[in-house]
Design a protein around this nucleic acid. Structure first.
Lengths: 144, 144
DNA sequence: CACATCATGTTGACCCATCAACCTTTTTCC
DNA sequence: GGAAAAAGGTTGATGGGTCAACATGATGTG
């Protein structure tokens, strides 16, 4: 029983490392957490967005997005104005400070992503994505 | 900016699926959570153990282990007796009920692990482990 | 022996993630 | 038009995971 040979165990550790690295960057260069950062990316990516869009684009939990947006508003990085056409939703956009933060941190995140994949050849990256895909399918089974 | 092409994003999704699957098994067949389950495995693997060993064997956080052990004692699956030779640590072992639970759930977890890897060839598994290894190394960098 | 150091655990604080219950607004459909 | 269903959000609860501070027992060195 060597845990090192368990795929799930290794993946969990890898994930922990990756998270920790991201957390470190965000702490060193901003005052937002990972979920807030992801929300900011997703908003800026559309220019303007809504929580529902953020949820779908980022496959995040809507509760998490709701809280992240609230925090981001408090921190002054995001504004929300109620949609006149649909009063259920608000239109989210980054403030100037939000955009500044975004533009400061995004290059670092891109560099990190690049560094992570730098040790892998194009073929290997392809294989990795394929394997992730298949594992994800296998992980959906619930009849154990 | 398609998040689907981000390795970190895909890994996070995969990890979430895998966790959810494990959680589902534990909820259906026991009353312990994932960290408690891992602690139980690690104790039973040695027959007897200590928190420090569990922490090292499972590369878990000691705070997490401390709380998991406390809960497991409350649930009656683990006993702790102070080591006479070293009064700082306690020797942990599973109770009879703990062992029953362990023997009931472990086969399901093994089956799950097998199913996860069933779609992958031996070569692919090897590649996967190798890639995980290298990504883990790359994820250690902190100078961004 | 005494003091510094290290190892073992415990606790509080904080963040991430998920689920369920609930409220409001919009849409669908008869 | 009106009831039912669906969509957008909010909130509370639970669990996972990490970090820092602390208390205490063990160890090792001058």
């Amino acid at each position: 029983m060597d845990l090192r040979t368990f795929l799930t165990f290794r993946l969990a550790r890898l994930q922990a490392q990756i998270n920790s690295q991201a957390q470190h960057i965000l702490q060193a260069h901003s005052d937002v957490g990972q979920s807030e950062w992801r929300v900011m990316i997703l908003i800026e990516d559309r220019g303007e967005s809504t929580m529902a869009h953020v949820v779908r684009d980022g496959q995040m939990d809507k509760a998490q997005v709701s809280r992240a947006v609230k925090t981001l508003q408090k921190k002054g990085y995001v504004t929300a104005r109620v949609d006149t056409a649909d009063h259920r939703q608000s239109i989210l956009s980054l403030t100037t400070e939000g955009r500044v933060l975004h533009n400061r941190v995004l290059p670092l995140m891109r560099a990190r992503q690049k560094h992570l994949m730098a040790g892998l050849s194009a073929d290997e990256i392809e294989v990795m994505f394929d394997l992730i895909e298949r594992l994800e399918t296998a992980a959906q089974r619930r009849d154990f």
